[in-house]
Amino acid sequence: MSTPVLDVQGLAFAYADGHQALFGVNLHVHRGEHVALLGPNGAGKTTLVLHLNGILTPGRGSVRVAGLEVAAPHLQEIRRRVGVVFQDPDDQLFMPTVRDDVAFGPANLGLRGSELDARVAEALTRVGMLEYVDRPPHHLSFGQRRRVAVATVLAMRPEILVLDEPSSNLDPASRRELAEILTGLDATLLMVTHDLPYALQLCERSVVLSDGVIVADGPTSDVLADEETMRAHRLELPFGFDPRAHGVS
């Protein structure tokens, strides 16, 4: 089999205050896969995400992105390969205009001039936000800001797109529009979410992280249908939702 885009092996991590968040996580994601990372609050999902682009460094174990170890000498390259879209777009969008913000990542990679402009236009086109290129981020709706946040990361042409709670705080129409954009992307996705129907709609595979270990890994419809595991790890489907009646679109 080919080198996984994401290869996490035996990852353990404790914060400086002694709180152990991860106890030996193993996770492989292959090119083109859409994987949902599920788990209750405090399961260690965010800690895991921050390891993927080297913001946190493993206490034990290793993380590799497309064969390259996540470690100090090549953090810039790792951060290009792993595009993290954070939960609050106001945290992600910090430059005065949409254009400057989408250009931020590629400019850090050394792109300039027309090449940079083309990259910005390409990324904004992919999320349908090109006409807002000169707007300040705080004049956009929440759903639009989330789409621009996705574009800021797409502009770096990542190997894998990591989304933290992409559907949170979106109204149903924005939620659907974002789903359409994400399904049309032709990218490797790792999506951290509590929105189980969204996971079922967008990801063929789901991984459940609970108390710092992976407790389930399989096709999303099977994982969500396994009532015992779901209950044991505080995962609940919305009232009346039957995962077997729906499938990946």
């Binding site: 954070f86 945290d91 992600q92 931020f104 990542g105 850090n108 770096m156």
Partner: peptide
């Protein structure tokens, strides 16, 4: 705290101490 989160988001996109020149 927002400042810290923004800083994380900046690091995640390759920030190394300099903002790119605003065109």
């Amino acid at each position: 705290e927002r400042g810290e989160r923004v800083h994380l988001a900046m690091l995640s996109r390759g920030y190394a101490g300099r903002l790119p020149m605003l065109s």
